[in-house]
Write a protein that binds this DNA or RNA. Structure first.
Lengths: 215, 215
DNA sequence: GTCTATATTAAGATAGAC
DNA sequence: GTCTATCTTAATATAGAC
Protein backbone atom coordinates (compact mmCIF):
# COMPACT_ATOMS: atom_id res chain seq x y z
CA UNK A 1 0.00 0.00 0.00
CA UNK A 2 1.06 3.54 -0.63
CA UNK A 3 1.99 5.46 2.47
CA UNK A 4 0.33 8.84 2.59
CA UNK A 5 1.78 11.58 4.72
CA UNK A 6 -1.26 13.45 5.98
CA UNK A 7 0.09 16.65 7.43
CA UNK A 8 -2.81 18.93 8.03
CA UNK A 9 -2.52 22.15 9.94
CA UNK A 10 -4.88 21.71 12.90
CA UNK A 11 -3.28 19.49 15.57
CA UNK A 12 -6.46 17.65 16.40
CA UNK A 13 -8.43 16.27 13.54
CA UNK A 14 -11.85 17.01 14.88
CA UNK A 15 -14.99 15.99 13.06
CA UNK A 16 -15.63 19.58 12.03
CA UNK A 17 -12.13 20.06 10.67
CA UNK A 18 -12.29 16.83 8.69
CA UNK A 19 -15.56 17.99 7.19
CA UNK A 20 -13.99 21.30 6.20
CA UNK A 21 -10.89 19.77 4.71
CA UNK A 22 -13.06 17.32 2.83
CA UNK A 23 -15.11 20.16 1.41
CA UNK A 24 -11.97 22.04 0.43
CA UNK A 25 -10.44 19.02 -1.27
CA UNK A 26 -13.66 18.34 -3.14
CA UNK A 27 -13.70 21.92 -4.41
CA UNK A 28 -9.99 21.80 -5.20
CA UNK A 29 -10.43 18.60 -7.19
CA UNK A 30 -13.00 20.35 -9.32
CA UNK A 31 -10.89 23.44 -9.92
CA UNK A 32 -7.51 21.76 -10.37
CA UNK A 33 -8.91 19.16 -12.76
CA UNK A 34 -10.51 21.83 -14.89
CA UNK A 35 -7.71 24.38 -14.92
CA UNK A 36 -4.54 22.55 -13.95
CA UNK A 37 -2.39 23.60 -11.01
CA UNK A 38 -1.26 26.94 -12.39
CA UNK A 39 -4.62 27.78 -13.91
CA UNK A 40 -6.45 27.18 -10.65
CA UNK A 41 -6.82 29.97 -8.11
CA UNK A 42 -7.46 29.90 -4.39
CA UNK A 43 -10.35 32.28 -4.97
CA UNK A 44 -12.09 29.72 -7.17
CA UNK A 45 -11.48 26.93 -4.68
CA UNK A 46 -12.60 29.04 -1.74
CA UNK A 47 -15.76 30.14 -3.50
CA UNK A 48 -16.66 26.59 -4.48
CA UNK A 49 -15.95 25.32 -0.97
CA UNK A 50 -18.13 28.13 0.42
CA UNK A 51 -15.37 29.32 2.66
CA UNK A 52 -13.24 32.45 2.83
CA UNK A 53 -9.75 32.41 1.37
CA UNK A 54 -7.98 33.02 4.71
CA UNK A 55 -10.07 30.31 6.30
CA UNK A 56 -9.04 27.96 3.55
CA UNK A 57 -5.43 28.80 4.32
CA UNK A 58 -6.07 28.03 7.94
CA UNK A 59 -6.60 24.40 6.97
CA UNK A 60 -3.85 24.15 4.40
CA UNK A 61 -0.43 25.77 4.39
CA UNK A 62 -0.55 26.71 0.76
CA UNK A 63 -2.08 26.08 -2.64
CA UNK A 64 0.65 23.56 -3.24
CA UNK A 65 -0.24 21.72 -0.05
CA UNK A 66 -3.85 21.28 -1.18
CA UNK A 67 -2.69 19.97 -4.53
CA UNK A 68 -0.19 17.56 -2.98
CA UNK A 69 -2.76 16.31 -0.52
CA UNK A 70 -5.25 15.64 -3.32
CA UNK A 71 -2.79 13.68 -5.42
CA UNK A 72 -1.49 11.53 -2.61
CA UNK A 73 -4.97 10.80 -1.29
CA UNK A 74 -6.22 9.73 -4.70
CA UNK A 75 -3.25 7.62 -5.68
CA UNK A 76 -4.39 4.38 -4.07
CA UNK A 77 -7.81 4.66 -5.63
CA UNK A 78 -6.13 5.18 -8.96
CA UNK A 79 -3.96 2.07 -8.74
CA UNK A 80 -6.70 -0.13 -7.31
CA UNK A 81 -8.00 -1.45 -10.66
CA UNK A 82 -4.59 -2.81 -11.65
CA UNK A 83 -3.98 -4.23 -8.17
CA UNK A 84 -7.20 -6.19 -8.51
CA UNK A 85 -5.91 -8.12 -11.54
CA UNK A 86 -5.80 -11.70 -10.30
CA UNK A 87 -2.87 -13.94 -11.38
CA UNK A 88 -5.04 -16.99 -10.68
CA UNK A 89 -8.00 -15.89 -12.77
CA UNK A 90 -8.70 -16.56 -16.42
CA UNK A 91 -6.10 -14.50 -18.34
CA UNK A 92 -8.26 -12.91 -21.04
CA UNK A 93 -11.10 -12.27 -18.58
CA UNK A 94 -8.75 -10.74 -16.02
CA UNK A 95 -7.36 -8.28 -18.53
CA UNK A 96 -10.67 -7.28 -20.09
CA UNK A 97 -12.07 -6.90 -16.56
CA UNK A 98 -9.23 -4.53 -15.85
CA UNK A 99 -10.10 -2.60 -18.99
CA UNK A 100 -13.70 -2.49 -17.84
CA UNK A 101 -12.79 -1.15 -14.41
CA UNK A 102 -10.60 1.49 -16.02
CA UNK A 103 -13.29 2.71 -18.42
CA UNK A 104 -15.70 2.85 -15.48
CA UNK A 105 -13.19 5.00 -13.63
CA UNK A 106 -12.99 7.32 -16.63
CA UNK A 107 -16.78 7.55 -16.59
CA UNK A 108 -17.25 7.95 -12.84
CA UNK A 109 -14.11 9.87 -11.89
CA UNK A 110 -13.10 12.07 -14.82
CA UNK A 111 -11.84 14.82 -12.52
CA UNK A 112 -9.43 12.45 -10.81
CA UNK A 113 -8.24 11.27 -14.21
CA UNK A 114 -7.58 14.80 -15.42
CA UNK A 115 -5.86 15.71 -12.16
CA UNK A 116 -3.38 12.89 -12.68
CA UNK A 117 -3.10 13.62 -16.41
CA UNK A 118 -2.12 17.21 -15.66
CA UNK A 119 0.41 16.08 -13.09
CA UNK A 120 1.98 13.56 -15.46
CA UNK A 121 2.06 16.03 -18.36
CA UNK A 122 4.07 18.44 -16.21
CA UNK A 123 6.55 15.64 -15.59
CA UNK A 124 4.99 14.45 -12.29
CA UNK A 125 6.78 17.06 -10.13
CA UNK A 126 4.76 16.15 -7.05
CA UNK A 127 4.39 12.37 -7.17
CA UNK A 128 7.40 11.40 -9.24
CA UNK A 129 9.15 9.59 -6.39
CA UNK A 130 6.14 7.62 -5.24
CA UNK A 131 5.26 6.63 -8.81
CA UNK A 132 8.82 5.55 -9.55
CA UNK A 133 8.55 3.28 -6.55
CA UNK A 134 4.96 2.10 -6.15
CA UNK A 135 3.60 2.37 -9.67
CA UNK A 136 6.68 0.89 -11.25
CA UNK A 137 6.68 -2.02 -8.80
CA UNK A 138 3.01 -2.70 -9.40
CA UNK A 139 3.33 -2.58 -13.18
CA UNK A 140 6.42 -4.77 -13.18
CA UNK A 141 4.64 -7.28 -11.00
CA UNK A 142 1.60 -7.47 -13.25
CA UNK A 143 3.79 -7.49 -16.34
CA UNK A 144 5.38 -10.68 -15.09
CA UNK A 145 1.96 -12.24 -14.68
CA UNK A 146 1.03 -11.26 -18.23
CA UNK A 147 4.30 -12.63 -19.56
CA UNK A 148 3.68 -15.92 -17.81
CA UNK A 149 0.20 -16.12 -19.31
CA UNK A 150 1.64 -15.50 -22.76
CA UNK A 151 4.36 -18.11 -22.29
CA UNK A 152 1.73 -20.63 -21.28
CA UNK A 153 -0.12 -19.81 -24.49
CA UNK A 154 -3.18 -18.66 -22.56
CA UNK A 155 -3.07 -15.24 -24.20
CA UNK A 156 -1.45 -14.12 -27.43
CA UNK A 157 2.16 -12.99 -27.30
CA UNK A 158 2.29 -9.33 -26.27
CA UNK A 159 4.65 -6.77 -24.78
CA UNK A 160 3.17 -6.54 -21.27
CA UNK A 161 4.31 -3.01 -20.42
CA UNK A 162 3.08 -1.59 -23.68
CA UNK A 163 -0.17 -3.52 -23.31
CA UNK A 164 -0.71 -1.76 -20.00
CA UNK A 165 0.13 1.60 -21.58
CA UNK A 166 -2.46 0.90 -24.27
CA UNK A 167 -5.06 0.12 -21.63
CA UNK A 168 -4.31 3.32 -19.72
CA UNK A 169 -4.31 5.37 -22.88
CA UNK A 170 -7.52 4.07 -24.44
CA UNK A 171 -9.56 4.23 -21.26
CA UNK A 172 -8.32 7.50 -19.77
CA UNK A 173 -8.70 9.14 -23.16
CA UNK A 174 -12.46 9.33 -22.58
CA UNK A 175 -11.95 11.34 -19.39
CA UNK A 176 -8.88 13.41 -20.22
CA UNK A 177 -9.89 14.35 -23.75
CA UNK A 178 -13.65 14.14 -23.38
CA UNK A 179 -14.05 17.56 -24.99
CA UNK A 180 -12.59 16.22 -28.21
CA UNK A 181 -14.53 12.97 -28.04
CA UNK A 182 -17.80 14.82 -27.56
CA UNK A 183 -16.98 17.28 -30.28
CA UNK A 184 -16.13 14.55 -32.79
CA UNK A 185 -19.15 12.44 -31.91
CA UNK A 186 -21.35 15.53 -31.89
CA UNK A 187 -22.90 14.60 -28.56
CA UNK A 188 -23.15 16.36 -25.22
CA UNK A 189 -22.63 13.18 -23.27
CA UNK A 190 -20.30 10.34 -24.14
CA UNK A 191 -22.01 6.97 -24.53
CA UNK A 192 -19.63 5.03 -22.34
CA UNK A 193 -21.36 1.76 -23.16
CA UNK A 194 -20.17 2.15 -26.76
CA UNK A 195 -16.63 2.86 -25.62
CA UNK A 196 -16.69 -0.07 -23.21
CA UNK A 197 -18.03 -2.42 -25.87
CA UNK A 198 -15.44 -1.26 -28.39
CA UNK A 199 -12.57 -1.73 -25.93
CA UNK A 200 -13.86 -5.09 -24.74
CA UNK A 201 -13.96 -6.36 -28.31
CA UNK A 202 -10.61 -4.95 -29.35
CA UNK A 203 -8.71 -6.20 -26.30
CA UNK A 204 -10.27 -9.64 -26.71
CA UNK A 205 -9.00 -9.66 -30.28
CA UNK A 206 -5.56 -8.59 -29.15
CA UNK A 207 -5.34 -11.18 -26.41
CA UNK A 208 -7.17 -14.25 -27.63
CA UNK A 209 -4.54 -16.70 -28.82
CA UNK A 210 -4.77 -17.44 -32.53
CA UNK A 211 -5.12 -21.03 -33.68
CA UNK A 212 -1.59 -20.91 -35.03
CA UNK A 213 -0.18 -19.90 -31.65
CA UNK A 214 -2.14 -22.43 -29.58
CA UNK A 215 -0.25 -25.46 -28.48
CA UNK B 1 -7.84 22.68 -45.66
CA UNK B 2 -8.03 24.63 -42.48
CA UNK B 3 -8.05 28.38 -42.95
CA UNK B 4 -5.61 30.10 -40.68
CA UNK B 5 -6.16 33.71 -39.77
CA UNK B 6 -2.63 35.10 -39.58
CA UNK B 7 -3.01 38.44 -37.90
CA UNK B 8 0.42 39.63 -36.96
CA UNK B 9 1.10 43.09 -35.71
CA UNK B 10 3.58 44.51 -38.21
CA UNK B 11 1.83 45.57 -41.41
CA UNK B 12 4.55 44.35 -43.68
CA UNK B 13 5.77 40.85 -43.17
CA UNK B 14 9.40 41.46 -43.89
CA UNK B 15 11.98 38.70 -43.87
CA UNK B 16 13.35 39.95 -40.57
CA UNK B 17 9.95 40.06 -38.91
CA UNK B 18 9.09 36.56 -40.09
CA UNK B 19 12.36 35.31 -38.63
CA UNK B 20 11.54 36.95 -35.33
CA UNK B 21 8.01 35.66 -35.15
CA UNK B 22 9.32 32.22 -36.04
CA UNK B 23 11.83 32.36 -33.23
CA UNK B 24 9.16 33.53 -30.80
CA UNK B 25 6.76 30.77 -31.80
CA UNK B 26 9.49 28.16 -31.49
CA UNK B 27 10.26 29.37 -27.98
CA UNK B 28 6.59 29.60 -27.12
CA UNK B 29 6.00 26.04 -28.30
CA UNK B 30 8.68 24.87 -25.92
CA UNK B 31 7.34 26.81 -22.95
CA UNK B 32 3.60 26.28 -23.51
CA UNK B 33 4.07 22.54 -24.10
CA UNK B 34 6.03 22.16 -20.89
CA UNK B 35 3.95 24.36 -18.61
CA UNK B 36 0.56 24.77 -20.23
CA UNK B 37 -0.94 28.14 -21.08
CA UNK B 38 -1.33 29.43 -17.54
CA UNK B 39 1.94 27.96 -16.34
CA UNK B 40 3.90 29.61 -19.12
CA UNK B 41 5.21 33.16 -18.70
CA UNK B 42 6.24 35.75 -21.23
CA UNK B 43 9.56 36.05 -19.40
CA UNK B 44 10.36 32.42 -20.13
CA UNK B 45 9.34 32.75 -23.76
CA UNK B 46 11.26 35.98 -24.22
CA UNK B 47 14.37 34.56 -22.62
CA UNK B 48 14.27 31.44 -24.77
CA UNK B 49 13.64 33.50 -27.91
CA UNK B 50 16.58 35.72 -26.95
CA UNK B 51 14.48 38.83 -27.18
CA UNK B 52 13.22 41.37 -24.66
CA UNK B 53 9.69 41.08 -23.35
CA UNK B 54 8.48 44.41 -24.79
CA UNK B 55 10.00 43.48 -28.12
CA UNK B 56 8.13 40.20 -28.00
CA UNK B 57 4.94 42.16 -27.43
CA UNK B 58 5.78 44.28 -30.42
CA UNK B 59 5.28 41.22 -32.61
CA UNK B 60 2.27 39.76 -30.82
CA UNK B 61 -0.60 41.58 -29.16
CA UNK B 62 -0.65 39.36 -26.12
CA UNK B 63 0.30 36.07 -24.59
CA UNK B 64 -3.03 34.73 -25.77
CA UNK B 65 -2.26 35.79 -29.33
CA UNK B 66 0.98 33.80 -29.36
CA UNK B 67 -0.83 30.76 -28.06
CA UNK B 68 -3.65 31.06 -30.56
CA UNK B 69 -1.22 31.53 -33.42
CA UNK B 70 0.71 28.42 -32.42
CA UNK B 71 -2.38 26.24 -32.24
CA UNK B 72 -3.84 27.38 -35.53
CA UNK B 73 -0.51 27.07 -37.34
CA UNK B 74 0.05 23.55 -36.08
CA UNK B 75 -3.43 22.24 -36.70
CA UNK B 76 -2.92 21.21 -40.31
CA UNK B 77 0.25 19.37 -39.49
CA UNK B 78 -1.61 17.58 -36.77
CA UNK B 79 -4.45 16.39 -39.00
CA UNK B 80 -2.17 15.44 -41.91
CA UNK B 81 -1.63 11.79 -40.90
CA UNK B 82 -5.35 11.06 -40.90
CA UNK B 83 -5.89 12.98 -44.14
CA UNK B 84 -3.31 10.74 -45.77
CA UNK B 85 -5.35 7.59 -45.13
CA UNK B 86 -6.20 6.37 -48.63
CA UNK B 87 -9.67 4.90 -49.28
CA UNK B 88 -8.25 3.05 -52.28
CA UNK B 89 -5.37 1.42 -50.44
CA UNK B 90 -5.28 -1.92 -48.67
CA UNK B 91 -7.50 -1.48 -45.60
CA UNK B 92 -5.36 -3.06 -42.90
CA UNK B 93 -2.18 -1.53 -44.31
CA UNK B 94 -3.78 1.91 -44.54
CA UNK B 95 -4.81 1.86 -40.91
CA UNK B 96 -1.55 0.48 -39.53
CA UNK B 97 0.30 3.02 -41.68
CA UNK B 98 -1.78 5.71 -40.02
CA UNK B 99 -0.83 4.30 -36.65
CA UNK B 100 2.81 4.35 -37.71
CA UNK B 101 2.64 7.98 -38.80
CA UNK B 102 0.99 8.91 -35.52
CA UNK B 103 3.62 7.19 -33.37
CA UNK B 104 6.29 8.89 -35.42
CA UNK B 105 4.61 12.21 -34.71
CA UNK B 106 4.64 11.41 -31.00
CA UNK B 107 8.35 10.65 -31.28
CA UNK B 108 9.33 13.62 -33.45
CA UNK B 109 6.88 16.28 -32.25
CA UNK B 110 6.12 15.65 -28.60
CA UNK B 111 5.83 19.37 -27.86
CA UNK B 112 3.13 19.79 -30.46
CA UNK B 113 1.32 16.80 -29.03
CA UNK B 114 1.39 18.19 -25.51
CA UNK B 115 0.33 21.61 -26.73
CA UNK B 116 -2.81 20.11 -28.23
CA UNK B 117 -3.30 17.81 -25.25
CA UNK B 118 -3.29 20.80 -22.91
CA UNK B 119 -5.71 22.66 -25.13
CA UNK B 120 -8.13 19.72 -25.31
CA UNK B 121 -7.93 19.05 -21.59
CA UNK B 122 -9.02 22.63 -20.90
CA UNK B 123 -12.02 21.99 -23.14
CA UNK B 124 -10.43 23.39 -26.32
CA UNK B 125 -11.28 27.04 -25.54
CA UNK B 126 -9.22 28.34 -28.46
CA UNK B 127 -9.80 25.85 -31.27
CA UNK B 128 -13.17 24.43 -30.32
CA UNK B 129 -14.96 25.90 -33.31
CA UNK B 130 -12.41 24.85 -35.89
CA UNK B 131 -12.23 21.33 -34.45
CA UNK B 132 -15.99 20.99 -34.39
CA UNK B 133 -15.95 21.81 -38.07
CA UNK B 134 -12.73 20.51 -39.62
CA UNK B 135 -11.74 17.69 -37.31
CA UNK B 136 -15.27 16.35 -37.04
CA UNK B 137 -15.69 16.43 -40.83
CA UNK B 138 -12.40 14.67 -41.39
CA UNK B 139 -13.09 11.96 -38.83
CA UNK B 140 -16.60 11.39 -40.13
CA UNK B 141 -15.25 11.07 -43.65
CA UNK B 142 -12.62 8.51 -42.68
CA UNK B 143 -15.09 6.69 -40.44
CA UNK B 144 -17.25 6.09 -43.48
CA UNK B 145 -14.29 4.61 -45.31
CA UNK B 146 -13.57 2.31 -42.39
CA UNK B 147 -17.20 1.27 -42.18
CA UNK B 148 -17.20 0.44 -45.88
CA UNK B 149 -14.08 -1.67 -45.47
CA UNK B 150 -15.71 -3.54 -42.61
CA UNK B 151 -18.90 -4.14 -44.55
CA UNK B 152 -16.87 -5.53 -47.42
CA UNK B 153 -15.25 -7.90 -44.94
CA UNK B 154 -11.81 -6.50 -45.66
CA UNK B 155 -11.28 -5.62 -42.00
CA UNK B 156 -12.93 -6.99 -38.89
CA UNK B 157 -16.11 -5.33 -37.71
CA UNK B 158 -15.24 -2.29 -35.62
CA UNK B 159 -16.71 0.97 -34.37
CA UNK B 160 -14.85 3.40 -36.63
CA UNK B 161 -14.98 6.47 -34.38
CA UNK B 162 -13.82 4.57 -31.35
CA UNK B 163 -11.12 2.88 -33.41
CA UNK B 164 -9.79 6.33 -34.26
CA UNK B 165 -9.96 7.40 -30.61
CA UNK B 166 -7.95 4.29 -29.72
CA UNK B 167 -5.32 5.18 -32.30
CA UNK B 168 -5.05 8.75 -31.03
CA UNK B 169 -4.92 7.60 -27.43
CA UNK B 170 -2.33 4.86 -27.79
CA UNK B 171 0.06 6.87 -29.95
CA UNK B 172 -0.17 10.29 -28.30
CA UNK B 173 0.21 8.63 -24.92
CA UNK B 174 3.94 8.26 -25.57
CA UNK B 175 4.30 12.02 -26.07
CA UNK B 176 1.77 13.39 -23.60
CA UNK B 177 2.56 11.06 -20.73
CA UNK B 178 6.16 10.29 -21.56
CA UNK B 179 7.21 11.06 -17.98
CA UNK B 180 5.10 8.16 -16.74
CA UNK B 181 6.19 5.84 -19.55
CA UNK B 182 9.85 6.53 -18.82
CA UNK B 183 9.35 6.16 -15.11
CA UNK B 184 7.58 2.82 -15.47
CA UNK B 185 10.08 1.46 -17.97
CA UNK B 186 12.94 2.83 -15.91
CA UNK B 187 14.59 4.40 -18.95
CA UNK B 188 15.65 7.93 -19.80
CA UNK B 189 14.58 7.60 -23.40
CA UNK B 190 11.55 5.79 -24.70
CA UNK B 191 12.33 3.02 -27.20
CA UNK B 192 9.82 4.08 -29.81
CA UNK B 193 10.60 1.05 -31.94
CA UNK B 194 9.14 -1.14 -29.20
CA UNK B 195 6.04 1.01 -28.98
CA UNK B 196 5.66 1.04 -32.77
CA UNK B 197 6.05 -2.73 -32.98
CA UNK B 198 3.57 -3.29 -30.18
CA UNK B 199 0.98 -1.03 -31.78
CA UNK B 200 1.51 -2.50 -35.24
CA UNK B 201 0.90 -5.99 -33.92
CA UNK B 202 -2.10 -5.08 -31.79
CA UNK B 203 -3.88 -3.09 -34.48
CA UNK B 204 -3.28 -5.85 -36.99
CA UNK B 205 -4.90 -8.28 -34.57
CA UNK B 206 -7.83 -5.94 -34.08
CA UNK B 207 -8.35 -5.38 -37.78
CA UNK B 208 -7.49 -8.62 -39.53
CA UNK B 209 -10.77 -10.38 -40.32
CA UNK B 210 -11.15 -13.67 -38.51
CA UNK B 211 -11.83 -16.80 -40.51
CA UNK B 212 -15.35 -16.91 -39.12
CA UNK B 213 -16.09 -13.40 -40.36
CA UNK B 214 -14.64 -13.83 -43.83
CA UNK B 215 -17.11 -14.33 -46.60
C1' DG C 1 12.37 48.01 -34.05
C1' DT C 2 14.33 47.80 -29.65
C1' DC C 3 15.17 49.14 -25.16
C1' DT C 4 14.53 50.76 -19.89
C1' DA C 5 11.35 51.97 -16.83
C1' DT C 6 6.90 51.53 -15.12
C1' DA C 7 1.90 51.00 -14.73
C1' DT C 8 -1.62 47.52 -13.60
C1' DT C 9 -3.65 43.69 -12.08
C1' DA C 10 -4.20 39.13 -10.22
C1' DA C 11 -3.16 35.94 -6.89
C1' DG C 12 -0.83 33.74 -2.93
C1' DA C 13 -0.32 34.57 1.66
C1' DT C 14 -0.47 37.04 6.31
C1' DA C 15 -1.97 40.35 10.30
C1' DG C 16 -4.80 40.96 13.64
C1' DA C 17 -9.58 41.78 15.44
C1' DC C 18 -13.33 39.07 17.00
C1' DG D 1 -11.94 29.14 13.80
C1' DT D 2 -13.38 32.79 11.00
C1' DC D 3 -13.37 37.21 9.16
C1' DT D 4 -11.83 41.98 6.91
C1' DA D 5 -8.14 44.32 5.49
C1' DT D 6 -3.73 44.26 3.64
C1' DC D 7 0.92 42.95 2.27
C1' DT D 8 3.82 41.05 -1.43
C1' DT D 9 5.09 39.21 -5.46
C1' DA D 10 4.84 37.85 -10.08
C1' DA D 11 3.29 38.59 -14.49
C1' DT D 12 0.89 40.94 -18.36
C1' DA D 13 1.14 44.88 -20.67
C1' DT D 14 2.31 49.83 -21.88
C1' DA D 15 4.96 54.49 -22.16
C1' DG D 16 8.19 56.75 -24.18
C1' DA D 17 13.19 57.52 -25.25
C1' DC D 18 16.42 56.19 -28.70
Amino acid sequence: MTEIAVKLRPRKQTRISMEKTGKILEAALYVFSNSGFRGATLDQIAERAEISKPNLLYYFDSKEAIHRELLTRLLDKWLEPLRAMDPDGDPVEEIVSYVKRKIEMARDFPRESRLFANEIMQGAPVIHAVLARDLKALVDEKAKVITAWAEEGRIASVNPHHLIFSIWATTQHYADFSAQVRLVLGTDNIAFEDAAEHLDRTFRRILTPSFAEKR
